[in-house]
Amino acid sequence: MKVKRFNFRFLISNLDIYPFIVVFLISFKNPEPKKVFWRIFIYFIGLCLGYYGYTSIISFYQAFAYKDLIYLSNIILDLADLLGYSFIGVLAGIWGYVMVKHKDKQYLYHVMLLPFILISIYDLYSNFTCNPPQLFMMIVDILGLIGIIICSLNKKI
């Protein structure tokens, strides 16, 4: 049996890149707290509406193409996921708001960066320990960690 170590299937659907993106949105161009909140919230809403809008349209099409209304239940599941990830976007936005609001307290700022780093390390570990290890996702995780560190060293914030 051939083991796939270079599998691209997780590059699009995996959430490993999100900690870096949120930290980037927090530290990009010395923003004010409200702007950080809206950046992060709009980013999550855009992702949710784009992805779940697409999957709901597919489910709607399948319901009529196959004449089976069971496909419409996927729209309910998509709506639940949309609300869940929108809530995560609100929480991430509030987190970013607090980080920038208290940017003068460097200790607090760096402590608030710690969960993003820990999540990225956990993602790296889980991609390393799965069978087979997901090498491309490990590379994404390492690049994300490097990006978080670079953003945290940004003197403009």
Results as ranks from 00 to 15, higher is better:
Gly93Met: 00
Ile57Arg: 04
Gln62Gly: 09
Leu113Lys: 05
Leu83Glu: 09
Ile157Pro: 04
Pro31Ala: 07
Gly147Thr: 04
Asp16His: 06
Gly53Met: 01
Trp38Pro: 09
Leu15Gly: 07
Asp141Gly: 13
Phe6Trp: 12
Ser73Arg: 00
Thr55Lys: 02
Lys4Met: 03
Ile88Asn: 00
Ile42Cys: 02
Gly53Asp: 00
Tyr107Phe: 15
Lys2Val: 14
Leu47Asp: 09
Val140Thr: 07
Thr129Ala: 08
Tyr97His: 08
His110Gln: 13
Leu25Arg: 02
Ile148Trp: 12
Ile57Gly: 03
Leu135Thr: 14
Lys105Asn: 15
Glu32Arg: 07
Pro133Glu: 07
Leu153Ala: 00
Ile42Pro: 07
Asp78Met: 04
Ala80Trp: 03
Leu77Ala: 14
Tyr107Ile: 15
Ile70Thr: 15
Lys101Tyr: 14
Asn131Tyr: 15
Val23His: 01
Phe41Thr: 11
Leu83Ala: 15
Asp16Thr: 13
Leu113Tyr: 03
Ser152Asn: 13
Phe37Pro: 05
Asn7Gly: 07
Leu108Trp: 02
Gln62Leu: 14
Ala80His: 08
Arg5Val: 04
Tyr85Gln: 10
Tyr51Phe: 15
Leu15Ser: 03
Pro33Tyr: 11
Ile57Phe: 15
Ile40Asn: 01
Tyr66Trp: 08
Tyr54Ser: 09
Gly96Met: 05
Ile26Asn: 00
His102Ile: 09
Glu32Val: 11
Gly46Asp: 00
Ile12Val: 12
Tyr97Pro: 04
Ile157His: 10
Val23Gly: 05
Ile12His: 04
Ile148His: 12
Thr55Tyr: 11
Leu153Asp: 02
Asn127Thr: 10
Tyr71Pro: 07
Gly46His: 00
Ile117Ser: 05
Leu135Pro: 02
Ile148Pro: 03
Ala65Ser: 14
Val90Trp: 03
Phe128Gly: 09
Lys105His: 14
Leu153Thr: 00
Leu49Lys: 06
Ser152Leu: 00
Ser56Leu: 05
Asn30Ala: 15
Ile57Trp: 10
Leu118Glu: 03
Arg5Gly: 10
Leu143Pro: 12
Val90Tyr: 04
Ser126Leu: 10
Pro115Tyr: 02
Asn74Leu: 11
Gly93Tyr: 05
Phe6Leu: 14
Ser59Asp: 10
Asn7Ile: 05
Met112Glu: 07
